[in-house]
C-alpha cells in the first residue's frame, strides 16, 4: 500500500474511462448521503441511504480494478478535486429534493446506457461488474421515474421540477464528454459496444420523452445545452467549487492524525 495516489499517466485509456465512471458513483453517493435523517419522509430517507450505499459500493467495484495496489481510501477518498473525473452534474449541490430526483434520473439514465454498452463487450472483470451494477441501477431508475410522476402533482412541484431541469440539464453536457483518448479509445479497444455520440443521442431521446410525458415546461435551450460542448468538463478534470467544498468536508477536524481521511494524499 502506498499513500500516494494513482497518477493519471500510469492508467491506460480503459482505466481512465473506469476512473471517470467510479468518480461519478463516488460523488453521487456523497450527495445522496446528505439526505440521511433529513429526507422528506422516513420511508424515503431509508431509500436514499440505500442509494448512497449502492453508489459508494459501485464506485468501490471500479476503484478496485484500477487501484494498482493502493488502498480504497487513497484512491477513492483522498484524491484532490483536480484529479477527479466525475461529471460536474454530480458534484452540484442539491438545493431541494427535486434536484435530487432530477439528478437521479439524468445520471442513472446515462449510466445505464454506458454500462449496457460496457457489459456487452468488456472482459470478464469489467463486464461482470457492469452487470452487477446494472441490476441495482434498475431500482435507481424506477425510483427516479416514480418520484418524477408524483412530484409534479402540485403547482409547486411542477415549478420546482421544471427549475431543477433548467438548472441541471446544462450541467449534464459532460456526461458523455470523455476526453479524446478516453472517449474514443474504449470503443476501439472493445470496452464500449457503441460510440459515445450514439449513447448521448439515446440519452437525449429518453430524457426528452420523459420530460414531454410530464406536465413540465422545460425550455429547448436547456435541452440543447445538455447535448452541446460542455463549458466545464469534469471528464477533463475541470470542476466547480461545489466539488472542492464537498471533498474538503471529508477532511474535517476532530480526527487524530493517523486516520486514513486526515487529509488529501501527498
Amino acid at each position: 500500500m502506498s499513500a500516494e495516489s494513482i497518477t493519471l499517466e500510469e492508467l491506460d485509456a480503459t482505466e481512465r474511462f473506469l476512473l471517470a465512471i467510479a468518480d461519478d458513483e463516488f460523488v453521487t453517493g456523497q450527495r445522496f448521503a446528505e439526505w440521511v435523517t433529513v429526507g422528506p419522509t422516513m420511508e424515503e430517507d431509508n431509500v436514499l441511504s440505500s442509494l448512497a450505499q449502492d453508489e459508494m459500493g459501485h464506485a468501490r467495484l471500479w476503484y478496485e480494478l484500477i487501484d494498482h495496489g493502493r488502498d480504497l481510501d487513497t484512491v477513492g477518498y483522498n484524491r484532490r478535486p483536480s484529479e477527479r473525473r466525475n461529471s460536474i452534474l454530480l458534484e452540484t449541490e442539491h438545493t431541494d429534493f427535486g434536484d435530487t430526483i432530477v439528478i437521479n434520473f439524468l445520471y442513472d439514465t446515462a449510466e445505464t446506457l454506458v454500462l449496457e454498452a460496457v457489459a456487452e463487450t468488456a472482459d470478464d472483470a469489467v463486464g461482470s461488474r457492469a452487470t452487477k451494477v446494472l441490476e441495482e441501477e434498475r431500482y435507481h431508475l424506477e425510483h427516479a421515474t416514480q418520484w418524477l410522476e408524483r412530484l409534479v402533482s402540485t403547482d409547486e412541484g411542477r415549478r420546482r421540477v421544471t427549475a431543477s431541469f433548467e438548472r441541471l440539464l446544462p450541467r449534464s453536457a459532460d456526461l458523455f464528454a470523455f476526453d479524446a483518448a478516453v472517449g474514443t479509445a474504449p470503443s476501439t479497444a472493445g470496452i464500449l459496444s457503441r460510440p459515445t455520440d450514439e449513447l448521448r443521442a439515446a440519452w437525449r431521446e429518453t430524457v426528452e420523452e420523459t420530460i414531454s410525458s410530464l406536465p413540465l415546461e422545460v425550455s429547448a435551450d436547456a435541452l440543447e445545452a445538455a447535448v452541446s460542448e460542455p463549458v466545464t468538463n469534469g471528464r477533463a478534470g475541470e470542476h466547480t467549487d461545489a466539488l472542492t467544498a464537498l471533498l474538503d468536508s471529508i477532511h474535517a477536524e476532530g480526527l487524530p492524525a493517523d486516520h486514513p481521511a486526515s487529509g488529501y494524499h501527498a
Binding site: T41, E43, E44, N46, V47, S50, Y139, H143, Q146, R150
Partner: peptide, 20 residues
C-alpha cells in the same frame, strides 16, 4: 408497514424498508 401515496410507490419503498 409503510405510508405511501399509491401501491406502486409502496412497493418501491418496501424494497428498501424491509430488513435489507
Amino acid at each position: 408497514t409503510v405510508t405511501a401515496s399509491d401501491r406502486e410507490m409502496a412497493l418501491t419503498l418496501a424494497k428498501r424498508n424491509v430488513d435489507v
